[in-house]
Nucleic acid binder design. Structure first.
Lengths: 344, 344
DNA sequence: CTGAAAGCGCTTACAG
DNA sequence: CTGAAAGCGCTTACAG
């Protein structure tokens, strides 16, 4: 089980260990005969460089750490694809860890990454407060994905969640909806802005009295629970704006099970435009985000600090885009279409 | 940007570096006063232990590496949950990397894990040949998830794919189907056995002439492509057994778009029982696997080698279970129900 | 309970 | 092009 080291290779090839190191690093700088001998010895022994030792002396690991809040949300998989693509183009490797939708476990995942001395860190859909994350940004480049911030110490990339939410609400309002409820995901990344966008657009449309906000989260079950509450609230909306597609799917399940028609009885909008949401049977109206691009951009931000010496914080915001499918339509009645009424 | 080391802490606390190390390792063995001084100095400096250095001397990293073939498949997220749970209970941390459904990139991900000197490796849904993976199993404990093997050098945990496939086909046959096609996913983990199970059950039922196999993969788009081929084959089956739920979803999309009814015109079965597959609008008949348990078991196998000195290979096979939902029903005609006929 | 020494497996200048 | 020496940041025996 003991692995061969550079010394074993050197002994077998009959050269010094420095020469072996040189061959491993830059074979072209070594004479033909010695190079061959070293390479052959390494192969015979099944030598595999010890990145731990290398990292210690180089003070860099070549690894970009990714901490995502939920491994189950396909949204992050696409972002991770983008990160990995950009990182590997520049000679870095990506390594993932999950925060399991829990700020404490997320914090622990981040700590592990820091102790492992990853060169840069990308945190997606964080459940933590930005202030707490800023504390680690002194040690290495950190980029937040999906969370808005104006921090001077770390970078961020996200879409304009408020704008996306407003587009969603505007779409519903233009279809004639006034009783539009919103499921939010607490302080999870992106949710506060989406909620604010919902509220602002409702106010702008003169629907301030119709604002109804229910607590859910970014998961299917969270969306389902919130939808059950909505159905039991005795104040049935004609449309629901969910905080993301996963939650919308949970809400959809509850609505379907209740025997209600979408969008006949109730319209539904999500956020993220998961591949899944485009399936004919789901056909969810949603707000799309350029997932892979978000990932590429996030990696780029880290690499700029790592390899180009950038020091000032950058915050990239890209526009979201409404994707209209089959879960939104006019409300059941039309008399409801006038704004600013008593909620009953 | 330079991080404080144990020496900085020692200097600030006015003690030797060994003492600092001791405090970090086992504070209870150090006197009250010194312990406090060290801890305070560490806090003031924002000291964070360098796991790279620690790993180098301890010759262990405390990390279990997970290489999964596809970050987009929610199946793996659940397995990873199980791994992480079992690993953290025993003081290990889990770290993920994707193989991007490509044997070469998978190999590269594995190599990175080895160079990083993870203590154990769990490979899920591998696209590689077992023989090639065995080569690395001399250096550290390796467990394969979802791939059958009798290797003497590494462990494996999976469900009985052949049995699951046979159950699926039996279910269709008992509904009266004879023209049952199968989409397979090449040599990807689990697929060959599922294909063989399909073929065996078809033969057992006297349907050897009705065997139709189409090449797809374990993704939605792979299932969709195969389904298009099936529709264009001029030999429409009354039922399709997909290699997994993701592929079944792709097939479902194509069938829906073609204006055909499921299960009225064609029955559909998947494999995995993703959460998603239970949604009312999907309601996919499928073969379930205990995902989290698979993960826990996989971690357990690695930990047994790591901490309990087990040397002989263990191969755990758990039974799958058919989950009957709404995508399977009797075939359109009933005359077809007799076995062993000319395929036209 | 505490300190000095050696070493984990590499790379990095630095001489030859 | 090649070799000896120092050191990355820790832990591990080993004396006191």
């Amino acid at each position: 089980m003991k692995q061969p080291t550079i010394l074993d290779v050197a002994a077998r090839a009959g050269v010094s260990k420095s020469l072996v190191s040189l061959v491993m690093t830059d074979p072209s700088r070594v004479g033909e005969a010695n190079r061959k001998a070293v390479l052959e010895a390494a192969k015979d022994l099944g030598y595999r460089p010890n990145a731990v030792a290398r990292s210690l002396v180089q003070r860099r690991t070549g690894v970009i750490g990714i901490v995502l809040s939920d491994l189950h949300n396909p949204f992050f998989a696409d972002v991770a694809d983008g990160i990995e693509a950009a990182a590997s183009e520049r000679g870095y490797r990506a390594m993932l860890s999950s925060g399991f939708l829990d700020p404490k476990r997320e914090r622990s995942a981040i700590t592990t990454m820091l102790e492992l001395r990853v060169d840069g860190l990308i945190i997606m859909g964080s459940m933590m407060k930005v202030g707490r994350i800023e504390g680690v940004a002194t040690a290495l480049p950190v980029t937040l994905v999906g969370r808005h911030t104006r921090s001077k110490r770390l970078d961020s990339v996200c879409t304009d969640d408020a704008a996306g939410a407003r587009e969603a609400v505007a779409h519903l309002a233009e279809l004639g909806h006034t009783r539009i409820a919103h499921i939010h995901a607490g302080s999870a990344a992106g949710s506060p802005r989406r909620r604010r966008g919902y509220e602002k657009e409702m106010i702008k449309r003169g629907l301030v009295d119709r604002i109804r906000v229910f607590r859910g989260d970014f998961t299917e079950s969270g969306g389902a629970k919130a939808m059950i509450e909505i159905l039991n609230s005795g104040d049935m909306p004609t449309a629901v704006f969910a905080p993301n597609d996963a939650a919308a799917l949970g809400a959809m399940e509850v609505i379907d099970d209740a025997g209600l028609d979408i969008p006949g009885d109730i319209s539904l909008i999500g956020y993220d435009d998961l591949t899944l949401s485009g399936l004919p049977r789901i056909s969810l109206t949603t707000v799309g985000q350029p997932r892979t691009d978000l990932g590429r951009e996030a990696a780029q931000l880290v690499l700029e600090r790592l390899d180009e010496g950038r020091e000032d914080a950058r915050h990239v915001v890209v526009p979201p885009s409404l994707v209209i499918r089959s879960t939104t339509g006019p409300p059941p009645g039309d008399a409801d279409a006038q704004p600013s009424e008593d909620p009953q």
